[in-house]
C-alpha cells in the first residue's frame, strides 16, 4: 500500500464520520421540538399527577400538604365517585353494543354496489367532524320536552316526551343517544374499510360451496372483521372514559350526578372545587383504567381475533 491510498482511505473514513455526525445532529434537531413538547406536556404530567395525588392542595396556596394515600382512600368512600364510575361504564357498554351493531349493519349494506352509496356514507359520517359542543347544543334543543324535534316521533308512537335533561332517570340515556348518534359514522367507516379488505374470492368460494347469506356473514365476514371490531371496541370504551363535551354542555353532569361521567367529575374537582390532590388521584386511576382496558383487550384479541 502506498502513501496515496492510505491518505485517501483515511480521508474517506473522516468524511464518513463527518457524514455520520451531521446525520446525528440532524436527527436530534429534527426530533427535539417534538420530544421536548412531549416531555413537558405529556410525560411529565403523568409523573406530576402521581406526585400531586399524595398531597392536599388547592392549586393556589404556596404549600402542599402531604397526606399519603388519603386521596385514594377518600375515593373508595366517595359515593359520587362510584356513581360516576357506574355511569361511565353504562355509557361505555351501551354505546359499544348499540353503536357497533348499527354501524356494522350499515357498513355491510354500504359494501354492496348501491346507488348513492357515497351520499349515505357522507351523511352518516358527518357528525364525526362536527363540533361536539354544537352537537350538544342542537341536541339539547332536539330533546326539549315542549317543542323538541324528538317529541314528534315519540308522539307517533303514542308516547309522551320525558323531561330528558332534567329528569335523573333520563339524563344519562339522553347522553347515550347523542354519543351513539355522533359516533356511528366513524365506526361505520372503519368497518367499511375492514370489509373492503376482505378478499372477494373468499365469498365466491363459500358461495360455490352453497353458503347462505347469513352463514357467509357469520362464518366469513365476522371472523375476518374481528381485528376491526376489537379496534373499535377499545376506541369506544376508552372514548366513554374520556367523554366530556356532550355531558358538560347538555347536562352539566346533573341532575344529581345522574349523568356525571369520569372526566367531567375530574374537571369539577380540579377546576370548580380546586381539590387538586383528589382530582390528580382521579387522573391516576383514569390512567390505570385505560391502561388495563387496553392490555386486557390486547390479550383477549390475541385469543379471539381470527386473522
Amino acid at each position: 500500500m502506498d502513501a496515496a491510498t492510505i491518505s485517501s482511505s483515511r480521508q474517506g473514513v473522516s468524511r464518513w464520520n463527518r457524514r455520520k455526525i451531521t446525520d446525528w445532529l440532524a436527527f436530534l434537531g429534527f426530533t427535539a421540538p417534538n420530544f421536548i413538547l412531549l416531555a413537558v406536556f405529556t410525560f411529565w404530567p403523568v409523573l406530576y399527577s402521581f406526585y400531586l395525588s399524595f398531597y392536599r392542595w388547592n392549586m393556589i396556596a404556596p404549600t402542599k400538604k402531604f397526606i399519603q394515600l388519603e386521596n385514594y382512600a377518600r375515593m373508595l368512600e366517595d359515593p359520587i365517585f362510584w356513581q360516576v364510575l357506574r355511569n361511565t361504564t353504562i355509557l361505555a357498554v351501551s354505546t359499544v353494543c348499540i353503536k357497533l351493531t348499527i354501524a356494522l349493519f350499515l357498513a355491510v349494506l354500504l359494501n354492496q354496489k348501491l346507488k348513492g352509496r357515497d351520499v349515505y356514507r357522507a351523511i352518516v359520517f358527518s357528525p364525526t367532524f362536527t363540533t361536539s359542543v354544537a352537537i350538544a347544543m342542537v341536541w339539547s334543543w332536539v330533546l326539549d320536552p315542549y317543542y323538541g324535534l324528538l317529541k314528534l316521533p315519540l308522539r307517533w308512537l303514542g308516547l309522551a316526551s320525558p323531561a330528558w335533561l332534567t329528569d335523573p332517570n333520563w339524563a344519562l340515556p339522553a347522553v347515550i343517544i347523542v354519543v351513539i348518534w355522533a359516533g356511528i359514522g366513524y365506526d361505520m367507516v372503519i368497518f367499511l374499510a375492514g370489509l373492503q379488505a376482505i378478499s372477494a374470492d373468499l365469498y365466491e368460494a363459500a358461495r360455490v360451496d352453497g353458503a347462505t347469506t347469513w352463514s357467509l356473514f357469520r362464518h366469513v365476514t365476522l371472523p375476518l372483521l374481528s381485528p376491526t371490531t376489537f379496534f373499535l371496541l377499545i376506541i369506544s370504551i376508552v372514548g366513554a372514559f374520556k367523554a366530556f363535551d356532550i355531558v358538560a354542555v347538555m347536562t352539566g353532569g346533573g341532575p344529581l350526578n345522574s349523568s356525571n361521567v369520569y372526566v367531567f367529575y375530574l374537571y369539577q374537582n380540579a377546576f370548580r372545587w380546586f381539590k387538586t390532590g383528589y382530582a390528580s388521584a382521579l387522573a391516576v386511576v383514569l390512567f390505570v383504567i385505560i391502561l388495563v382496558i387496553t392490555i386486557i383487550q390486547m390479550r383477549l384479541s390475541r385469543r379471539w381475533v381470527h386473522y
Binding site: T42, V46, L52, M59, K242, F244, L266, A283, L286, F287
Partner: peptide
Amino acid sequence: MIPGQMALIPNY
C-alpha cells in the same frame, strides 16, 4: 397511551 385528560392539572 396517555390520556390527555390526565394532563389537565399538570399542564395548567
